[in-house]
Design a protein around this nucleic acid. Sequence first.
DNA 1: TTTCTATTGCAACTGATTCTCAATTACAAT
DNA 2: ATTGTAATTGAGAATCAGTTGCAATAGAAA
Lengths: 143, 143
Amino acid sequence: MEDKIFKEFLEKKGLKFTKERAAVLKEVFSTHNHFDPDDLLIKMRKKGIRVSKASIYRTLPLLLECGLVEQVEKIDKHAHYEHTFGHGHHDHLICTKCGRIISLFSEKLERLQEKLCKKENFRSISHTLEIRGYCSKCNAKLK
Amino acid sequence: MEDKIFKEFLEKKGLKFTKERAAVLKEVFSTHNHFDPDDLLIKMRKKGIRVSKASIYRTLPLLLECGLVEQVEKIDKHAHYEHTFGHGHHDHLICTKCGRIISLFSEKLERLQEKLCKKENFRSISHTLEIRGYCSKCNAKLK
DNA sequence: TTTCTATTGCAACTGATTCTCAATTACAAT
DNA sequence: ATTGTAATTGAGAATCAGTTGCAATAGAAA
Ligand SMILES: [Mn+2]
Ligand SMILES: [Mn+2]
Ligand SMILES: [Zn+2]
Ligand SMILES: [Zn+2]
């Protein structure tokens, strides 16, 4: 469970599993969609959960660090995230027309990337692949 | 020549090839390294070229639009660019230790990505692949 | 020349993120 | 239960990249 993972991560760093951090975590895992810090704040406020903007901005890097959350879509001017626990790594197809985001995972692609890194003596830790273009619906409309 | 490309692009849009735009273009093509808008400004100031921050920020999107420049390294909080004319498309290996950036191009990788898009009925226009990790030198030091 | 539109620099502005700081809390040790 | 210590919090100020409004300027076309 993500609570346990986060809790243990915090303990290991001498940090506390406070109710604010718990609340942010819960909210982050309440949807499978991508989100940004402001989304989070607004949704929490709506639910009557009292948490400050600062706490959200302070909690997200912790969630990143312990691997429960990843940063995605560096297209916009602000950061977007998605929780990753319970999902494997995946890449994204981003429709620049309607904003739809399609997840993509290919073992073959991952292996090929790894092979190319080896050739350069590069030890890869993580990667981001974002393919921009038109989704099937938008593409159909354009014709 | 990039001047010609930019000039024709501007004309087509009813815009002018002013000396400021020409100066930004020249500076962008004066190095093969990645840069950010502030780099550009500082370098131009040093050379005594008078141009405003606003003009740089106004010119870069035009260079993007006509394909002479691409945005890279979506890691940092501010945008980074590289000129692409005279180079083909390529991806990046980024050493998170020393900051070294290694260009990578693989026909096979590109084809595979394309194939995966087809499977989703996605018409890809562009993509960014950034692999983060340790370069050979930094990796050696870690042992 | 007159008119028109695009362009410029500057400074003010914006919006996202980070920081500062005083007040609060958790919790381990008395 | 009380205290000491360090972590945490919210509020707002500060920062920083990027954008915008505007008055002055420059050119091209008429
Ligand atoms: Mn991948
Ligand atoms: Mn995703
Ligand atoms: Zn679409
Ligand atoms: Zn390195």
